[in-house]
């Protein structure tokens, strides 16, 4: 469960806060669409939840733990529980697809385990990568070079990486921004279905709002850093 209480994020030197008093409750297995124009603070809010951006005031609780108090190992553990899918899927092109997928396991692997996997992946680890890819429908791409994937396939790999992370929540930052409408709907459907099946909370920022009502439990609008509820899970 993720709880945001009056969260304010102000960048150094900025005139107004990027996020201004946002409050939100996301339960396990629930999906939330975060809509709003460019520059409205969607990315900042998502990054604040997994502490890639420090918050100025307010509280963010993930599974009852305040994220702003976490350091080092505890912070890594928090990030392991929160999978992030970025706007441009941010895969490492030079790696193979299975290596990008298993990057999701880095939070639970030791550094030596991670380096060993790069050189000598074990059968069991490859099976895990294959299963994750099968869930997003591209199991055959296991050993393909990442640079050879299409836009839609890259986004599926990013989702597979998030699944391997075995997260409590997925934070997706405009995951369909660069896709055509048909593919965008497929990806949104896949993401929300997988989240529901696995009991994962999903917060997904969207530029296009046309799918939000059909696929998400809650819809909140962020404009000028302020949150406004458009659809509530209770309703």
């Amino acid at each position: 469960m993720i709880v945001l209480d009056e969260v304010v994020v102000r960048y150094p030197g900025a005139q107004r806060p990027a996020v201004d008093g946002a409050s939100l409750l996301v339960k396990t297995g629930e999906s939330v669409a975060l809509v709003g124009p460019s520059g409205s603070g969607k990315t900042t809010l998502l990054r604040a939840i997994n502490r890639l951006v420090p918050i100025t005031s307010g509280t963010i609780l993930v599974d009852g733990v305040a994220v702003e108090s976490l350091q080092d190992k505890a912070l890594r553990a928090l990030r392991t529980r929160l999978a992030m899918i970025a706007q441009h899927h941010d895969l490492v092109d030079r790696l193979r697809v299975h290596q990008n997928v298993m990057a999701g396991a880095l939070g639970r692997w030791s550094s030596l385990h991670a380096l060993r996997y790069l050189a000598f992946p074990l059968r069991g680890e490859l099976d895990e990568a294959r299963n994750a890819l099968a869930r997003v429908g591209i199991a055959e791409k296991l050993r393909a070079p990442t640079s050879a994937l299409s836009g839609g396939e890259r986004q599926r790999v990013a989702i597979a990486r998030a699944l391997v992370q075995q997260p409590h929540a997925i934070l997706a930052d405009e995951p369909i921004a660069s896709l055509d409408p048909e593919l965008a709907e497929q990806i949104v459907a896949l993401l929300t279905t997988l989240a529901k099946e696995s009991g994962i909370a999903l917060i997904c920022s969207l530029h296009q709002v046309q799918f939000a009502d059909r696929y998400f439990d809650q819809i909140v609008r962020l404009e000028g850093g302020r949150l406004e509820r458009l659809k509530s899970s209770v309703a």
Binding site: N50, L52, R76, A77, L78, R79, T80, R81, L82, A83, M84, A86, D90, L91, V92, L95, Q99, A103, G104, A105, L106, G107, R108, W109, S110, S111, A114, L115, L118, A158, R161, Q165
Partner: peptide, 15 residues
């Protein structure tokens, strides 16, 4: 994005 998975510094360097 790799760091956001909770990866250690060394793992982030390698991956």
């Amino acid at each position: 994005s790799i760091a956001a998975t909770g990866a250690s510094k060394l793992s982030t360097v390698g991956f």
